[in-house]
Design a binder for these strands. Structure first.
Lengths: 258, 258
DNA sequence: AAACTTTATTAATCATACAATAATGTAAAA
DNA sequence: TTTTACATTATTGTATGATTAATAAAGTTT
């Protein structure tokens, strides 16, 4: 039921504008274009990307909207300081995840999710918004009845986490679901390198849901925290594979270089 | 020290494109243009706004980047379901705050901040990133030495909260600072209707800082929670001025129904 | 009824021209 | 010499028209 379409919630890459925004956004987030750096003029840059100035400008507007750049006449388009980037924007998030060579990214990520998602689970248990809780069940059931490391299983996982955020009844928390999607897809790609990891997490999902059903707010919160910590350990095992302590091994799991 | 420039971190309203994006974005977030609704064609809409198609299209790209709309040939530009909006985007946040007539908005808001900011304070206390903690002090000192309800005092308040998020050492938390800015400005405008409210909060800020200095993570967390709860009560007093309906106040914690 | 064409509508893209802006250099004035 | 005022110029901002591509909906055939 959940098809590819759900993946399109981030800025569309079908259009030329989308492609340029994606390409430039990635370069900026990955540091290939440094903070404070001024991009080539529209004239030159659009030619470099083989698109019209119009298409290029629209791409820049997209990046501007996400806080990545700022354009001014006579100055040019300058990359804004990292502090101003909207890291919680699903696209920025996804771009950033591509360069997640260091464990820093994974750490910040799980630290953040550990703040957000357990509380969302608690709120879901306390508020008991029936229809929304049913959607959690739906995701969970598919997770339990499909093979781990399949597309369908991942989609169910995404649906589960999105449903929890949604069932928190807080629209700011709900807004994080696109971001969490980007993350889950990232960790799916990482963790599918190693067998058996994902299967183990299904019961943890179940116990989160059970607590919510029982209206056990603190239980749900703890269960979710447990689930995330478990996921973090799995990821750490891979991203930081047998630490002999040197930089090289940490960098070994390189990003998808273009 | 902190001038107007800091207020410009959201999408610039100087350009025509910015004005149109602002106007349309506001209409969408406020529900004047409903979810699922299809906007007029570029041709018509741009004329309605008295701008060129170029400027209008660029505005649409901005809204697309924030998840508010989606354009396709033969379909037109359609307002996406509320679930897809990036509520954490500073601009969207600011637009949404304009329609905060209901307490729902304030409630969701404080619920969210109560999840985020106390944890940020705890992390700041635990990680002890010296330079960043100094920035907290700077904001606090200005708060303590300026008149409440002045621009300077508000700016110091913004700086204080931003510094805490920053000192959490987590870049996702840090990203929330623009959003929190929008909120603080909103509550400043609300609360400045009533005298004396803001002065009372200064000691609460101080105790958050003291806990961070003492490396008391849980203390900092609780102090921040206390600060926010106090702010919430102040706002509630004004937004919901002497509730005549007990029913209404009982349901107050409810979700944003639609 | 189903599958497939066609058509009409709309955004997407391109090319070009001109306007507005602001950094920088230049000359006049103190 | 320093400052002020002014002109220069590079860059984005805005406007317009033309062309292309995508696609939903209507129509046609099987």
């Amino acid at each position: 039921m959940r098809e590819r379409k759900d993946r399109d919630r981030t800025f569309s890459r079908r259009s030329l504008t989308g492609q340029v925004a994606h390409s430039l956004g990635m370069q900026i987030v990955c540091g290939e274009i440094a903070e404070g750096e001024v991009l080539a003029t529209e004239e030159a840059a659009s030619r470099a990307h083989s698109v019209s100035r119009t298409a290029y400008r629209e791409a820049i507007k997209v990046l501007t909207a996400k806080g990545l750049v700022d354009s001014r006449p006579k100055i040019g388009t300058r990359v804004r300081p990292r502090d101003d980037w909207n890291m919680l924007d699903p696209d920025v998030m996804q771009w950033a995840s591509k360069l997640a060579t260091t464990t820093d990214f994974a750490d910040s990520l799980f630290e953040f999710r550990l703040i957000i998602e357990p509380e969302a689970a608690r709120l879901a248990a306390e508020k008991q918004l029936e229809e929304k809780i049913n959607m959690i069940a739906t995701g969970l059931e598919i997770m339990e009845t499909t093979e781990p490391s399949t597309q369908e299983n991942l989609d169910a996982d995404l649906a589960f986490h999105a449903a929890i955020l949604n069932a928190s009844g807080n629209e700011f928390l709900r807004s994080l679901n696109h971001m969490v999607d980007a993350l889950l897809i990232w960790s799916f790609e990482i963790s599918s390198r190693k067998e058996g990891i994902r299967a183990a997490s299904v019961p943890l999902h179940r116990s989160v849901y059970n607590c919510i059903l029982k209206r056990d707010g603190n239980g749900a919160k703890q269960a979710m925290a447990h689930l995330l910590q478990s996921a973090r350990e799995d990821i750490d095992q891979i991203v930081l594979p047998d630490n002999e302590g040197d930089q090289a091994s940490a960098n070994r799991v390189g990003p998808t270089q273009r």
